[in-house]
């Protein structure tokens, strides 16, 4: 079991390494991708400067906290898209029969499939996250907590992407649903939770687990809270397990019905 995990990890690291090597062949394009993504993210600071020029406090967040919110949202997104890029096109992988090549490998199908390519521009998101963290105040604890939550957050949003992508096992082509769900996560992740009221706020903190990926981390990094930290970690594990179960249920369906082959 442990050996299997080690072997899987080994393959993933190699994939990332080789992917990076490929992207670095064209240096200009590589640097453009990363740096433009940083600029791209930075442009939203303007939006918040305008908003904070109208009010000192938006949804209970100071300007500094909004920066933190952005930082954590960006690196969460970055880690997820860098390492697990293919989870965002899982629907396509399933409906076009591209899972086959992973099924004949003696590795975990889900992990192999979603880590089979990297997104270089996501490095820009990760870097941006850390840059903004530095601007909003850098200490060792903040750095460690930030890294921890970027990773748990990345796992959670990857889980959601996989769950949405897995819908294709049952409903065929459903990439638009997945895209919608994924961008919904990103859209909400960059606004303070306090501006939402009532049901919307409850939904965001629970079913759409933005609490786990961005809001709680911002609260915890601002004032440390052990209980909330544990909740984040444990929930991440539970959601991940659930994701694996659903994916493998879908995979059984893929293997037993093969709805995907419309052209034999």
């Amino acid at each position: 079991m442990l050996q299997a995990v080690k072997n899987q990890f080994n393959v993933t690291v190699k994939t990332i390494k080789y992917g990076l090597m490929r992207e670095m062949i064209n240096k200009t394009s590589f640097i453009m991708n990363v740096s433009f993504m940083i600029l791209n993210n930075a442009s939203f600071i303007i939006q918040w400067i305008v908003i904070y020029s109208l009010k000192d406090n938006v949804g209970g967040y100071s300007f500094n906290q909004v920066l933190l919110l952005w930082a954590i949202a960006a690196s969460t997104y970055g880690f997820s898209h860098f390492i697990f890029k293919k989870s965002y096109s899982l629907s396509d992988i399933i409906t076009n029969g591209k899972l086959d090549s992973f099924l004949v490998q003696p590795k975990n199908v889900l992990i192999s499939a979603i880590t089979s390519d990297i997104e270089v521009s996501a490095l820009g998101d990760i870097l941006y996250g850390y840059i903004v963290l530095a601007i909003s105040g850098l200490t060792l604890t903040r750095f460690l907590l930030f890294t921890l939550f970027s990773i748990t957050g990345a796992i959670v949003i990857t889980d959601i992407a996989v769950l949405l992508g897995s819908l294709s096992f049952w409903f065929g082509k459903s990439d638009m649903i997945a895209d919608t769900g994924n961008s919904l996560m990103t859209n909400f992740a960059t606004y303070p939770d306090g501006i939402f009221k009532g049901l919307a706020r409850i939904l965001l903190l629970t079913i759409i687990p933005l609490g786990l990926t961005t809001y709680f981390p911002v609260w915890i990094i601002t004032t440390f809270n052990l209980k909330l930290t544990l909740i984040v970690i444990i929930s991440t594990i539970i959601i991940t397990l659930f994701t694996f179960i659903i994916f493998y249920k879908g995979l059984r369906r893929y293997s037993s019905t093969n709805l995907m082959i419309s052209k034999i």
């Binding site: 393959v11 190699k14 994939t15 490929r22 062949i25």
Partner: peptide, 16 residues
């Protein structure tokens, strides 16, 4: 973009 040799190394990793 990899050499044949690196590719073979990659497949070796897949098969442990």
């Amino acid at each position: 973009h990899l050499t044949a040799y690196d590719n073979f190394k990659f497949f070796s990793a897949i098969y442990d």
